[in-house]
Write a protein that binds this DNA or RNA. Structure first.
Length: 207
DNA sequence: AGAACGATCGACT
DNA sequence: GTCGATCGTTCTA
């Protein structure tokens, strides 16, 4: 199987958030693979992180997904309009997840473009903002609450190391990229957790 | 039952 | 940079 094994997700969330960078997110939609290279993530830990929906092991209908086995999708609805995709991490019962904040399209771009912008013409601005935010990622991949709780070891939604894992030509190596980290976005309410440097992204190195 | 609040985005000054 | 859209989830009573 091409997808990363459940064991990959059964561990330290901050570490997994970094290890996911550069890997390929695959969403199979009506048989067509929609693929994006993961370029930005954030870690959320219920145990100690006031920004996490399950902070203090708070269990509700929504956060129950975070208490599942690692390697499941946690997709929630936010701001009345958008969805955010996460991967459940840590041993079962330790509520935590990695938020996928950005991907670079790698296959199925035409379908993703239609899902994102419909018939509107492609522009440089739209290209630049194609999937550089969690709501945009879910829109481009047609992910919503219906996919909440999906098993990432299945073949509908999963992560793999290389495009060759799903029978696509290998991508040209990305030279001169560095891993950066900083505070997470949109969690100013989270008191001390506001400053945790748990956002990670790949960036072209400055010459 | 009612109210407050978002792990966001895109339009606009 | 600011600001409004929009509604499910959660909490209060």
């Amino acid at each position: 199987m091409a997808s990363l094994p459940r064991e990959f997700y059964n561990g330290d969330t901050v570490e997994i958030a970094q290890k996911l960078l550069g890997k390929y997110l695959v969403r199979r939609l009506d048989g067509e693979p929609l693929v994006g290279r993961i370029t930005e993530t954030e870690a959320y830990l219920g145990r100690c992180d006031k920004a996490c929906h399950a902070y203090g092991y708070k269990k509700t209908a929504r956060t129950s997904t975070l208490f599942m086995e690692p390697g499941h999708a946690y997709i929630y609805f936010i701001y009345g309009m958008y969805h955010c995709l996460n991967f459940v991490t840590e041993p079962e019962g330790e509520p935590a997840a990695v938020l996928v904040r950005a991907i670079q399209p790698a296959a199925g771009e035409e379908t993703m473009r239609r899902l994102r912008f419909g018939d509107a013409p492609m522009t440089a601005y739209r290209r630049r903002n194609f999937s550089n935010g969690p709501g945009k990622v879910c829109k481009a991949l047609f992910l919503s609450s219906s996919e909440n709780r999906l098993d990432l070891t299945g073949d509908t939604l999963f992560v793999c190391d290389s495009l060759t894992d799903i029978g696509l030509p290998e991508a040209t190596p990305s030279a001169g990229e560095v891993l950066r980290s900083g505070p997470r976005i949109g969690i100013d309410y989270a008191e001390e957790a506001r400053d945790f440097p748990w956002r990670f992204w790949l960036e072209k190195e400055e010459p």
